[in-house]
């Protein structure tokens, strides 16, 4: 079966005052129907830009090459009306800050039904019924009352649930969630993660979950992609990816985070900082910070090559890695 979303060799270059800046290089990823896929990396690694590309939200002047097929349709090169059809009813998105996606002056009900009346051409009453259903589905207590409330009357976690309900209004098959729990407390985060998993199980919704937190990646998703400097450096089933990483960067990320398993251990920081866009060194982008770099690493960016069951890694050295956890 063909994957629901199939991104192949995607490259994106953004305009800047100092000339075009390449942000994404040769990104390939797939999301199957009803699958929870994780995309992880530090800020500036290109994970959010990937999401923007898939929703046709790139700034004007961006140059895109490669291919991104959703349910068999090529997305790149769609016109405004084509995007309109894909967004909402095909691919929907939720963001880190739910307030950004919610209009502060309109009631939740108005925002929910507006969406459905535009995308699904529903009449007012049908849309109203579905709005209640949706709020119930995302576990908002007392949905009828919630419909008449304004976004500011909800807590952060509840606002994110409302944003998810709006994203789901037009029955998308793929939800792109860009750090939706980063601004939330852990107990609230747990609720949102459980909600996404339940939506997947009950409705077959596929979720691409973007995060910088490897713990969240492991807890929620079954397959993951690790991004670094606009490239996928490693991918595979999340469990094996995070318990037995084969790319030095994945291992370094794991070492730099607190594991919550022992006291008094020191974190192992990654030396240096990620390269700014356009300033990546020739060859492997991680090589200047990598403890295992060899002279050959400086020659060309290593391609993503198969390594083990369902796994690929972009590293030519393939060192033996100690994992702290």
């Amino acid at each position: 079966m063909a994957p629901l979303l199939d991104v192949d060799s995607l490259a994106v270059t953004l305009p800047s005052p100092r000339g075009p800046l390449p942000i994404l290089h040769d990104v390939s990823l797939t999301v199957d129907e009803g699958e929870l896929v994780g995309i992880a990396g530090e800020s500036g690694c290109g994970k959010s830009l990937t999401a923007q590309t898939l929703l046709g939200l790139l700034p004007p002047g961006a140059a895109v090459t490669g291919s991104a097929r959703y349910a068999g349709t090529e997305l790149l090169g769609l016109d405004a009306r084509g995007w309109q059809r894909v967004r909402g009813a095909g691919i929907a998105m939720v963001f880190q800050d739910p307030s950004a996606a919610l209009h502060p002056m309109l009631t939740v009900g108005r925002q929910l039904t507006e969406h459905m009346r535009v995308h699904l051409r529903m009449d007012r009453r049908a849309a109203g019924r579905r709005a209640v259903e949706l709020l119930d589905q995302v576990r908002i207590p007392d949905p009828e009352r919630a419909l008449r409330a304004y976004p500011h009357q909800f807590s952060g976690g509840m606002r994110q649930r409302v944003a998810i309900a709006i994203a789901l209004a037009a029955r998308p098959r793929l939800l792109i969630a860009d750090e939706p729990t980063t601004a939330l407390d852990v107990t609230v985060q747990a609720g949102i993660l459980a909600l996404l998993e339940r939506l997947r199980a009950e409705t077959g919704l596929a979720v691409a979950f973007i995060t910088h937190d490897l713990g969240v990646l492991s807890a929620l998703t079954t397959r993951g992609y690790i991004f670094y400097a606009g490239r996928v450096v490693e991918t595979g089933p999340t469990g094996s990816l995070l318990t037995a990483p084969t790319h030095p960067y994945t291992a370094a990320l794991l070492g730099a985070r607190p594991h919550g398993t022992q006291t008094g251990a020191t974190l192992r920081p990654i030396p240096g900082a990620p390269p700014a866009p356009g300033e990546a060194p020739p060859g492997c982008p991680f090589q200047p910070r990598c403890g295992y770099a060899e002279p050959s690493c400086g020659e060309a960016p290593p391609p993503l090559t198969p390594a083990g069951v369902d796994r690929s890694v972009a590293c030519v050295v393939r060192p033996h890695l100690e994992v702290a956890a």
Binding site: S43, Q96, D97, E179, T182, A183, L184, D185, H212
Partner: peptide, 8 residues
């Protein structure tokens, strides 16, 4: 409190 982005 836990946002990553700098509001300023």
């Amino acid at each position: 409190m836990t946002t990553l982005a700098d509001p300023k």
